[in-house]
Structures are given as structure tokens and as C-alpha cells.
Computed example of a mutant assay.
Amino acid sequence: MDKSWLNIRNRVDQRYRDGVEGFLNWAFSQPGLRDSYKVWDLHGEVLARVENSNVTHRDEVEDDSNVGDDITE
């Protein structure tokens, strides 16, 4: 898949818009995420262990360290 459109800073450039549209068309043609994929560990989300009573739960924790990241990075 051609990703050169990611390097175009002008978001109204037709080449950029065509690249986004092509990517979205491809993404929506895919079967989607598995129902069991609840914590996005493959996308930077981390797990935290919380103990309550005698039961250990795995809670989703949002990673704020990448706030403001740009899609090109």
C-alpha cells in the first residue's frame, strides 16, 4: 500500500485526501477487530492489576504519554 500521502503536510491537498480515502476504503473492507481484543495492547495500551477483596482484576488503563502525537509519527 502506498503511504507517501502521509508525508503531505497540507491536509487539503488532493493527493492527501485521496490517500486518506484509499486507506479508509481498505480499512472498512477488512473483517474488523476480534471481539476478544478489549485492551489495545498492540496499539500502546497497557494493563494494570487492581486488587479488590481476594480477586485480581485486569483493568484498561489509558496511556497519556503520547498525547498530541501526529499520525505521521
Rank of each mutant, 00 (worst) to 15 (best):
Q30I: 01
E51Y: 03
T72C: 11
E45T: 03
K38L: 10
V46T: 13
N66K: 13
R17S: 05
L42F: 12
T72S: 14
T72D: 15
D70S: 09
F23D: 09
G44A: 03
K3Q: 02
D41E: 15
R11L: 11
D41L: 11
D13F: 04
S4M: 03
I8A: 05
E73A: 08
N52I: 09
F28A: 05
R17P: 01
T56F: 05
Y37N: 12
I8H: 02
N25R: 15
E62R: 13
G32N: 03
E45Y: 06
R11D: 02
G68L: 06
S53H: 03
D64M: 10
L42E: 15
N52T: 02
E62P: 08
S65G: 03
S65L: 10
E62N: 13
D2R: 08
G68R: 03
D18H: 11
D70E: 10
N66P: 00
S29N: 07
G22D: 13
E62L: 09
E62W: 14
L42C: 04
G32D: 05
V12N: 15
K3N: 07
V50K: 03
W26A: 14
V46W: 06
F28Q: 11
V50G: 00
G68V: 01
R34T: 01
D69R: 11
R58P: 00
L47C: 04
V61D: 07
N7S: 14
R9I: 00
N52K: 12
S65A: 08
R34Q: 09
D59E: 15
R49Y: 08
V20I: 14
S36C: 02
L33M: 11
D35A: 09
T56K: 04
T72Y: 05
N7T: 12
E60Q: 07
V50D: 01
E21A: 15
W40G: 01
D63H: 09
L24H: 04
D63A: 08
G68D: 03
H57S: 10
D18P: 00
D63N: 15
D13Q: 04
V12T: 15
L6K: 12
W26G: 00
R58S: 12
Y16E: 05
